[in-house]
Design a protein around this nucleic acid. Sequence first.
DNA 1: CCGCTATCGAGAAACTTATATCGAGAAAAA
DNA 2: TTTTTCTCGATATAAGTTTCTCGATAGCGG
Lengths: 222, 222
Amino acid sequence: MSQLKVRVVSRSTLKRLPLYLHLLESLADQGLQNVSCTQIAEKFDFDPTQVRKDLEATGEVGTARIGFRTVSLIVKIKEFLGWNNAHDAFLVGAGNMGKALLGYKDFDRYGLNIVAAFDKDTRKVGSRIFNREVLPLVKLPNLAKRMHINIGIVTVPAEYAQEVVDLMVVAGIKAIWNFAPAPLKIPEGVILENARLTQSLAVLTNNLTKVLGDDGKDLEKN
Amino acid sequence: MSQLKVRVVSRSTLKRLPLYLHLLESLADQGLQNVSCTQIAEKFDFDPTQVRKDLEATGEVGTARIGFRTVSLIVKIKEFLGWNNAHDAFLVGAGNMGKALLGYKDFDRYGLNIVAAFDKDTRKVGSRIFNREVLPLVKLPNLAKRMHINIGIVTVPAEYAQEVVDLMVVAGIKAIWNFAPAPLKIPEGVILENARLTQSLAVLTNNLTKVLGDDGKDLEKN
DNA sequence: CCGCTATCGAGAAACTTATATCGAGAAAAA
DNA sequence: TTTTTCTCGATATAAGTTTCTCGATAGCGG
């Protein structure tokens, strides 16, 4: 069937892998040949066993007393995450967040290549943001089909998010990265991943409220 | 002790509360007086019991056959998250992500008020971004102390993140919202929350790799 | 007025994730 | 060469989270 065997792992593991990857890349830059789970774990204050389990997902095997080959591990993680060859993506909503994503240089290293931006607002249409043209939203379906776009990024206000997503689904887009704070409905088979800043902020402000309001006991770690 | 009793809840619960809040606010706008956990759960494809357990954290109690009073629940969630009265924050790193955050209008609704931006780059210093002045980084410690700033937002490249954080800690900042993909060390008592887009992206691209490479079985839900 | 149904809240069970333990192998030190 | 130490990988235990089950309560319909 498929040449690439992708194991099913927990979402938590999946979210730690990019952390390891960043670290490994900087270690590789420093010329480090091998790296142990213990070393990695220390950087993040994780349990070494957890790191070992996480890395197991990539299929890379280590050697006792040595650890893992740094470059080899980097390749395997990227492969596992699908970051080896970039997927083309369309972005809808050329507001602040949209612009920030368009301007983010490193996405190509993360398997993402935003090829065009779309917006409803006719004043934005026609302009260029970080060298990508802003197109009218109505052009999305045809273009997405013709260019075989798999990823759609949603950076519109919450009230328009569902209609944008519906449009993307019709256009054959398989995976949606949503930045709008709205509960979205998608059909079976389409992948939806929510990147919501407010969730992260909620954890921060709740913790802060606890330490400020009280004398700061019972704080969860990390 | 403290007048506000903040229960300790799981990180997962904490991250779902903003979702409920958004929904509740739009329901309240539509004039809905009461709302049941079942209704909320349907919108997100969650288990109703989970919603009930999550809401329990806020201290609000519901009535059988009726559910919860919408407005009252909104207030309680905001209170619990510390979103009722905004905390002042400093942002360091006036790049793309920094600009996007500075331009985000709704933060005041989420208990966050970014009062100033800082940057090392002398070309950026002195300019104004969305009506906030960009100040030289060296001015941060004194200003933060004088203004009793509790929250620091880090939107600098990974290699500068640790030094920025160290500066913030010295300046008495209690909570750090980090957007840099670097493992940061902070002293006991300081809160660190990482808002990393790459983690979310990793989940997306890994899932996409699975459905594209294979015939798409064993996909995890939401 | 009396069942019927929706909903809450509490406790138990099932599931998931994280941590600890242990044996084996490989390099380094004695 | 032998011993020690580090690290992997596997298994087992513990902790945490979600889902299920149940009794109680409040409105609704007959």
